[in-house]
Amino acid sequence: LRLFDEIKDIESDAIHHPERPLPRGILRKDDIIRAVFIIIALELLLFSLYGLRALASVAIAIGYSLVMYKEFFSKKWLRAHLTLYAVTHTFVVIFLSTAIFSALLNKPLANLPPDLLHFSFGGWFLFNIFEFGRKTFARQEEKEGINSYSKIFGRFGAVLLVLTMAILSIVFINSVTTSAVDSGFLFLWLGVTTIAGFLYAILDRPHLAKIYRFITSLYIIFTYGTIIILQFY
């Protein structure tokens, strides 16, 4: 998915991010495309080891990602709607999550337990936190010609958007991890993000915006890490 983004953004990166590998000429577009096909082949091979159900599940995820790469054949319109662009792209997380569950449980997608579907949607909300957070800036950091959630919604609106995703992720993930300890840690990460977000929104300082982006970038790791570690206690 990251490789797809590198290809899609090559024209914009040449103007706004000339330091990235493709604009600098360190990598060629053909190199990225070859890497994409190699990774897809490996995904299909690995999932095929778990049977036809797993293979069919990951094929759906790959199919969605390829349509996503073509920007749903509505590039101009979709790019004009940054939030919709983001959530339709991160939605692939649900297909990837359910493909993994299908492989591990040897069940078709239609027969997966509802709580695992809820968990997959929780993952979608987590990736939205990452996506919304990384494109939120202090006023001094905003760049001409580059859209951001802080431009669209304002600083407070952008923070509230992330916090909404965080709360939804907790609601959906808690349908699987019902432990009070799990919930406590998830709300702890929410509290840290809330404090960092409102400090950034109120004071509008670049260093606070960077701290906020750092925390939202790690939110996925905090959440999944908490769930994994606490399974051993």
Rank of each mutant, 00 (worst) to 15 (best):
L3A: 15
L3G: 14
K8R: 07
K8W: 00
I10L: 05
I10V: 08
E11H: 09
E11T: 09
S12M: 01
D13I: 02
D13C: 03
A14I: 06
I15Y: 04
I15M: 05
H16I: 10
P18V: 14
E19P: 04
R20V: 09
L22R: 12
P23C: 15
P23K: 14
P23M: 13
D31T: 13
I33M: 15
I33G: 13
I33E: 15
F37V: 06
L42W: 02
E43G: 12
E43N: 10
E43R: 04
F47K: 05
G51V: 01
L52N: 08
A54T: 10
A54Q: 12
A54N: 14
A54K: 11
V58K: 03
I60D: 01
I60N: 01
I60A: 09
I62C: 06
I62D: 01
G63I: 14
S65W: 01
S65L: 03
L66Q: 02
V67T: 06
E71F: 01
E71A: 01
K76G: 08
W77R: 11
L78P: 03
R79D: 10
A80V: 00
A80I: 00
L82P: 00
L84A: 15
L84N: 15
Y85Q: 12
T88S: 15
T88C: 14
V93F: 01
F95D: 07
F95N: 05
F95Q: 11
L96G: 08
A99Y: 07
F101Y: 15
L104C: 10
K107P: 02
P108I: 03
L109K: 04
A110W: 06
A110D: 02
N111L: 13
P114G: 07
P114H: 11
L117K: 09
H118Q: 10
F119C: 08
F121A: 06
F125W: 05
N128F: 06
N128K: 03
I129L: 08
I129D: 08
R134N: 04
T136Q: 12
A138S: 10
R139Y: 13
E141C: 05
E142V: 07
E142I: 05
K143R: 09
G145W: 02
I146T: 10
S148A: 15
Y149F: 15
I152Q: 12
F153R: 14
R155I: 02
G157M: 04
A158W: 01
V159L: 02
L163Q: 06
T164G: 14
A166V: 02
A166D: 04
A166T: 01
F172P: 02
F172H: 09
T177D: 00
V181Y: 13
L188G: 08
W189N: 01
T194Y: 11
I195S: 02
G197P: 00
L199E: 08
L199S: 06
L203Y: 09
D204K: 08
H207P: 00
L208K: 04
K210A: 15
K210D: 15
I211W: 05
I211A: 11
I211K: 05
F214T: 14
I215A: 09
I215V: 14
I220V: 13
I221E: 08
I221R: 04
F222N: 05
G225I: 13
G225R: 10
T226I: 08
L230E: 07
Q231I: 04
F232P: 00
F232C: 00
Y233V: 12
